[in-house]
Simulated assay, not measured.
Amino acid sequence: MIGKNPTTIPRRQLGRQLREMRQAAGLSIADAARLIERGAGTLQRLEKGENPRIRLLDIEALCRLYGVGRDKLGALQALAKEADERMRPVDERVWWHRYDDLIPDDFETYMSLEAAAAQVIMYQPDVVPGVVQTPDYARALERTFFKSDTPMESEQRVQVRMQRQTAITRRLSPVELDLLVDEAVVRRIAGSQKVMAAQLRKLADVPPNVRVRVLPFAGGFPLGCAPGAFVILRFPMDFGTKEPVEPTTVYVESYGSRLYYDSAEVVDRYLEAHDQLSQVALSEPDSKHLLRQVAKEFES
């Protein structure tokens, strides 16, 4: 049985923000540690999210050293206080802060990881993932699930999904997306046949950094079971340490929960599952052909 939700993600995100602030200030770890009268090893562990205990006085001293404002200090202190619990990273600068009332705390954690990732590997057996949805497809899902929403709230939820897509469309360092979808995703109607046709054409015309493949019904059950949807997030390398800025993380979302795993054993298990699913998936050209073919069927 896979273990409990890890507690390292908030610490890693706190460490990443502190590291970015130090680098922006032009200081080495040794210099920053000396100036706040702490050991270089202590600061290095803090930046890597490996400190089991985080001193708020250290956070205050670092923020003062780096010249950041009170708002940022308060956000980092709040994150530090909750670093041993599942919680969202607090950063006033991110775009999704405008939608705090609509986004669950634990999903803000996912959006932060997705935006920071170098590669996102997804398997989705039921629905087109939000990061590649059309507005009309997203509306069809949101209006059904959030029946009590006002029209304005419903539209804001759609905007959140559309804004997430900038991670794969941005000009500088777009996220690489490797997407496996089951054939059920292609044929199950959300909204209307017209909505589905547009959605499938979008999947067939993705940018070069996005790879879409379809797992056909004829592929059966490559794992001998239905694994459910999952996401594997890989992060860019730190040029100083030559290591990823954060460990590869698996995100698993079900109807009632969101779980994050970063242990090597669990990550390897999901990578192996993805490899097995990939072996029976259609090639990219064949997948695009199927997407366009089914889009034509919906249009007719």
Score class of each variant (00 low, 15 high):
Met21Asn: 06
Arg93Lys: 10
Gly41Arg: 07
Gly15Asn: 10
Arg292Asn: 06
Phe146His: 13
Asp126Pro: 10
Ala24Ser: 06
Thr248Phe: 00
Glu142His: 13
Val181Arg: 11
Gly228Lys: 08
Glu108Leu: 11
Leu282Asp: 02
Ile59Asn: 03
Asp106Val: 07
Lys4Leu: 09
Ala30Pro: 09
Asp106Ser: 09
Pro285Leu: 08
Asp31Trp: 03
Leu259Asp: 07
Ala226Arg: 13
Arg201Asn: 05
Asp106Glu: 09
Arg258Ile: 07
Leu35Asn: 10
Phe239Leu: 15
Phe217Trp: 04
Trp95Gln: 11
Gln199Tyr: 02
Trp96Asp: 14
Asp101Trp: 08
Asp105Ala: 12
Lys147Glu: 14
Glu253Phe: 00
Thr150Met: 05
Leu62Thr: 02
Trp95Gly: 10
Asp286Ser: 09
Glu297Tyr: 01
Ala83Thr: 12
Val195Trp: 01
Ser287Asp: 02
Ile232Gln: 06
Asp268Ile: 02
Ala30Met: 10
Lys242His: 06
Glu50Ser: 10
Tyr260Asp: 11
Asp205Lys: 12
Arg164Ile: 04
Tyr110Ser: 05
Arg171Met: 05
Gly74Met: 13
Glu37Ser: 13
Ser148Val: 12
Ser148Pro: 14
Arg292Thr: 04
Ala138Phe: 03
Val186Trp: 02
Leu46Asn: 09
Arg258Cys: 08
Pro151Tyr: 04
Glu142Ala: 13
Val250Arg: 10
Met237Gln: 15
Tyr270Leu: 06
Lys4Ile: 06
Ser287Cys: 02
Leu46Met: 10
Lys194Met: 06
Asp286Tyr: 04
Glu142Asn: 15
Leu35Lys: 15
Ser278Tyr: 00
Asp100Phe: 01
Phe107Asp: 05
Ala78Arg: 13
Tyr255His: 15
Asp58Ser: 09
Asp205Cys: 11
Tyr99Cys: 03
Gly74Gln: 15
Val175Leu: 08
Leu271Tyr: 03
Pro52Ile: 01
Lys194Asp: 09
Arg64Trp: 00
Trp96Pro: 12
Arg258Pro: 12
Glu243Trp: 01
Asp101Ser: 15
Gln124Arg: 15
Met237Pro: 12
Leu18Thr: 10
Glu114Tyr: 07
Val131Asp: 12
Gly49Cys: 04
Met152Asn: 12
Ile9Leu: 03
Thr248His: 06
Lys4Ser: 13
Ala30Glu: 14
Tyr251Ile: 10
Val127Asn: 11
Asn51Gly: 07
Glu50Leu: 11
Glu47Pro: 09
Val294Ser: 06
Ser257Phe: 06
Ala75Met: 04
Met87Ala: 07
Thr134Lys: 07
Val231Arg: 13
Gln77Cys: 13
Gly220Phe: 04
Val120Leu: 05
Asp262Val: 07
Gln124Gly: 13
Leu14Ile: 05
Val186Phe: 00
